[in-house]
């Protein structure tokens, strides 16, 4: 009887275990990216740019070529690769500290130039790798090691909504936010990633998918609770959906939830 493979490791994902903590969704996001790259038949001409953060070793986890960038500079490195070789598919994989703090200038200008690259932006509301410090995306009142009394918005401002912020730029782009804390959300996230990579492959525009992710270790909770925390605390502040498409049909951002002060 012929065997039917119903589930296999994507070709674009290297056959190695990752170092991610139990319940961390970095690994799920890697897998979705790899599946999309495979399904679009892009792996052979894809170059990934790894960030500085928990996903610094992403270059070991994909079986595509990679460059490792300095902290926050992945969009600049990606720009260099893409401008040198426009035929390549270039994606930057970045955390929220990497992209929205130290690398805010690089991402804004990369998006504004309309670099035809794809950014996978993993928002876990914290600095995972360095042990749980406040990120620009840390929620109001959320406790971290550098805001031990909870994020005080009167002192450090509100968490930055990156997708919404980049969607304000005039340059055409595809900007969306997704999540992966339930299988259904992951299916939608994959769809967003597929659109992002397709826009790049067609030479249309810059694309960025923000993906809400867990950090059970530094949030100080077990994995299941962490997925609930995403649903309960992150999704209300970071609405899911498409914020900008290159044909100019920008989605009107949802009204801000009342709890935000």
């Amino acid at each position: 009887m012929a065997e039917t493979v119903v589930f296999a490791r994507p070709q674009a994902l290297a056959p190695v275990p990752t170092h991610y903590c139990p319940g961390c969704t970095h690994g799920v996001i890697h897998r979705l990216v790899a599946e999309v790259v495979d399904e679009l038949g892009l792996a052979h001409r894809t170059v990934g740019i790894a960030p500085v953060g928990c996903s610094v070793l992403a270059y070991n986890y994909f079986s595509t070529d990679f460059q490792e960038a300095a902290h926050g500079r992945a969009p600049a490195v990606a720009t260099g690769v893409k401008r040198a070789r426009p035929d390549l598919i270039v994606f930057a994989y970045q955390g929220d500290g990497d992209l929205a703090s130290i690398g805010m200038a690089e991402i804004v200008h990369c998006a504004n130039r309309g670099e035809k690259i794809t950014v996978v932006f993993v928002n876990n509301a914290i600095y995972g790798m360095t042990g749980g410090q406040m990120a620009p995306t840390t929620l109001p009142g959320q406790v971290t090691t550098t805001c031990p009394l909870g994020r005080d918005v009167s002192q450090v401002g509100y968490p930055i909504r990156v997708a919404e912020l980049l969607a304000t730029l005039r340059t055409p782009a595809f900007v969306a936010r997704a999540a992966v804390h339930t299988p259904l959300h992951a299916v939608t996230a994959k769809e967003m990633l597929r659109r992002a990579f397709r826009y790049q492959a067609e030479g249309t525009c810059f694309s960025l998918v923000e993906v809400l992710s867990t950090c059970p270790t530094n949030w100080g909770m077990p994995p299941v609770e962490a997925t609930e925390w995403v649903e309960k605390n992150m999704v209300p502040y970071y609405p899911l959906g498409v914020f900008k498409t290159p044909d100019g049909l920008d989605r009107a951002p949802r009204p801000a939830p009342a709890t935000e002060g």
Binding site: T130, T145, C147, P148
Partner: peptide, 16 residues
Amino acid sequence: GYPITPQNEIPEYMAH
């Protein structure tokens, strides 16, 4: 300051 290992305990100490 900005977090970086192996000195995170300095900013964390100062934050507190």
